[in-house]
Computed example of a mutant assay.
Amino acid sequence: MLLPLPSTTTPTSSLSSSRFLSHHPNGLKSSSISGASKLSNKERRFIRKPGLAKISATFELKPPPYPLNALEPIMSQETLEYHWGKHHRTYVENLNKQIVGHRHACFTLQCPSQVSEPCFVILFYLLQVWNHDFFWESMKPRGGGEKPSEDLLKLIDRDFGSFEGFVNEFKTAAQTQFGSGWVWFAYKDSRLDVGNAVNPLRSDEDKKLVVVKSPNAVNPLIWGYYYPLLTIDVWEHAYYIDFQSRRPDYISMFMDKLVSWEVVNSRFKKAKAVVEQMEREDERKRKLEEQRFTTDEAPANAIFPDTDAAAE
Rank of each mutant, 00 (worst) to 15 (best):
S7H: 04
S14H: 04
L15H: 05
S22E: 12
H23T: 04
S30G: 11
S31V: 07
S34G: 08
S37W: 09
N41D: 15
R44V: 08
A53L: 01
S56V: 01
S56M: 07
T58I: 03
E60F: 09
E60G: 14
P65D: 11
P67T: 08
A70T: 02
E72H: 10
H102Q: 12
V115C: 04
C119D: 08
L127G: 01
L127M: 03
Q128Y: 13
D133Y: 02
F134Q: 02
W136A: 07
S138T: 07
K140N: 08
E146K: 12
K147Y: 02
P148E: 02
D151M: 12
D159W: 02
G165T: 00
F166H: 11
E169Q: 11
E169H: 06
E169D: 10
T176L: 05
S180E: 15
S180P: 02
K188N: 02
G195M: 14
N196Q: 13
L201V: 03
R202M: 04
K213G: 01
A217V: 01
V218E: 09
P220T: 12
L221W: 06
L230S: 03
T231E: 05
A238L: 03
R246F: 03
M253N: 14
M255C: 15
M255K: 14
N265T: 09
S266P: 00
S266H: 13
R267T: 12
K270P: 08
K270E: 14
Q277D: 10
E281Y: 07
L288V: 03
L288S: 04
Q291R: 14
R292T: 14
T294Y: 02
T294S: 10
T294M: 15
T295N: 12
T295P: 14
D296R: 15
A300M: 06
A310M: 11
